[in-house]
Amino acid sequence: MQPRANPTPARLSIPDAEAMYEFGRDLAGRLRAGDLVVLTGPLGAGKTTLTRGLGAGLRVRGAVTSPTFVLARTHPSTIEGPPLVHVDAYRLSSAVELDDLDIDFAGSIVVVEWGRGMLDGITDSWLDIEIERPLGASEAVPADAADLDLDLDEPRTVTITPVGPRWAAEGEWPRAAGPSA
Rank of each mutant, 00 (worst) to 15 (best):
Leu36Cys: 06
Phe69Lys: 09
Ala33Asn: 06
Val111Gly: 11
Val87Trp: 02
Arg59Pro: 00
Leu39Phe: 14
Val110Phe: 00
Pro42Cys: 03
Val70Phe: 11
Gly117Asp: 12
Ala95Trp: 03
Ala106Asn: 03
Ile103Leu: 15
Asp99Trp: 05
Val37Glu: 04
Val87Pro: 01
Gly62Tyr: 02
Gly115Thr: 06
Ser108Asp: 03
Pro134Val: 01
Arg73Pro: 02
Ala63Arg: 14
Ala63Val: 14
Tyr90Pro: 09
Gly115Val: 07
Arg133Val: 10
Ile79Ala: 14
Leu119Thr: 13
Gly81Val: 03
Leu98Gly: 08
Ala137Thr: 14
Asp99His: 11
Arg59Asn: 14
Asp100Ile: 05
Gly62Pro: 03
Glu97Val: 07
Arg59Trp: 00
Arg73Glu: 14
Val37Leu: 08
Ser66Gly: 13
Leu98Ile: 05
Ile109Val: 15
His75Phe: 12
Val87Ser: 02
Ile109Lys: 09
Leu92Arg: 08
Pro134Lys: 01
Gly41Lys: 10
Pro42Phe: 05
Val111Met: 09
Pro134His: 01
Gly41Tyr: 08
Asp120Thr: 15
Gly46Met: 00
Lys47Ile: 07
Lys47Leu: 10
Leu135Phe: 02
Asp128Asn: 14
Trp126Cys: 05
Ile131Tyr: 02
Phe105Lys: 04
Ala56Gly: 09
Ala33Glu: 12
Asp99Ser: 12
Ala56Cys: 07
Trp126Ser: 01
Val60Glu: 10
Asp120Cys: 12
Asp35His: 14
Thr40Gln: 15
Leu43Met: 15
Leu92Ile: 08
Met118Gly: 02
Val87Lys: 03
Leu58Cys: 05
Gly53Glu: 02
Asp104Leu: 09
Asp124Trp: 02
Val87Arg: 03
Pro42Ile: 00
Asp99Phe: 10
Trp114Met: 00
Ala95Arg: 05
Gly81His: 05
Glu130Ile: 01
Asp120His: 15
Ile109Ser: 11
Ser125Gln: 06
Gly117Asn: 12
Pro67His: 05
Thr68Lys: 04
Gly81Lys: 02
Leu58Thr: 01
Pro76Lys: 13
Leu71Gly: 04
Gly136Cys: 05
Asp120Leu: 12
Asp99Gly: 08
Gly41Cys: 11
Ala137Gly: 07
Glu113Cys: 09
Pro83Ser: 13
Arg32Asp: 14
Val96Gly: 08
Leu98Cys: 09
Val64Glu: 03
Val64Arg: 02
Val37Gln: 02
Thr40Pro: 04
Glu132Gln: 13
Leu92Thr: 08
Asp102Pro: 00
Tyr90Ser: 13
Ile131Asn: 00
Leu92Trp: 08
Ile122Met: 12
Leu39Lys: 13
Gly41Leu: 11
Leu119Asp: 05
Leu58Arg: 00
